[in-house]
């Protein structure tokens, strides 16, 4: 899977670094916890820039290419930061047959970005996801942690407005 790599300069804080170090400490040298450490790192930083991958590789004593290999293999890991509001439209089967493609297209045209991108002001990022398990509410989209069911292209405008500069 090709992942966009961010060109935004890394600006991690000492607090974030301390948190990551503590997480690595807790793994107690167990290399099979690499994915879990990277999940925690992504929670701390929001994404996994080069600098963070180096910290993990050194802390866990694994080659950097292994960290990068894992980061690019799993779709959960992002190499670019997400927008302040992360929109994800379900393109799972149940949603797809109920028209989630049109919902995705509407988000895309309203925000002026393609899936996988973030708006220039950093407010919104858009991506697709595979089934959040709420198929009874199809089509579904998720903004941050809020799930919206029975979304139509008309509702997309309302949803975006709700989050704008919030």
């Amino acid at each position: 899977m090709k992942k966009p790599i961010s060109k935004i300069p890394f600006n991690g804080t000492p607090e974030q670094e301390a948190k990551l170090k503590a997480a690595i400490e807790r793994s107690n040298g167990n290399k099979s916890e690499l994915i879990y450490i990277m999940q925690q790192a992504q929670d701390i930083y929001g994404y996994l820039p080069y600098e963070v991958q180096v910290m993990i590789a050194e802390g866990m004593d694994v080659p950097l290419e292994k960290v990068y290999g894992v980061a690019t293999f799993y779709s959960q890991f992002a190499l670019s930061p997400k927008g302040k509001n992360a929109i994800s439209v379900c393109l799972g089967t149940a949603c797809y047959v109920k028209g989630s493609k049109a919902v995705m297209d509407k988000f895309s045209s309203e925000l002026g970005i393609e899936p996988g991108q973030c708006t220039a002001d950093g407010e919104f990022s858009l991506e697709s996801c595979r089934c959040v398990g709420a198929c009874g509410l199809a089509p579904v989209c998720v903004v941050n942690d809020d799930v919206y069911g029975k979304v139509t292209p008309e509702k997309v405008v309302e949803i975006i407005a709700k989050y704008k500069s919030k």
């Binding site: 099979s32 994915i35 879990y36 999940q39 293999f73 799993y74 595979r130």
Partner: peptide, 26 residues
């Protein structure tokens, strides 16, 4: 507990095992 990281192939049993071991889930 081990948390998957969004790779469908990890539902295949040998991939799942390589993923639990902390690798790319091949």
């Amino acid at each position: 507990l081990r948390f998957g990281a969004g790779a469908f192939v990890c539902g295949e049993e040998t991939s799942l095992l390589t993923s639990i071991e902390g690798n790319r889930g091949e």
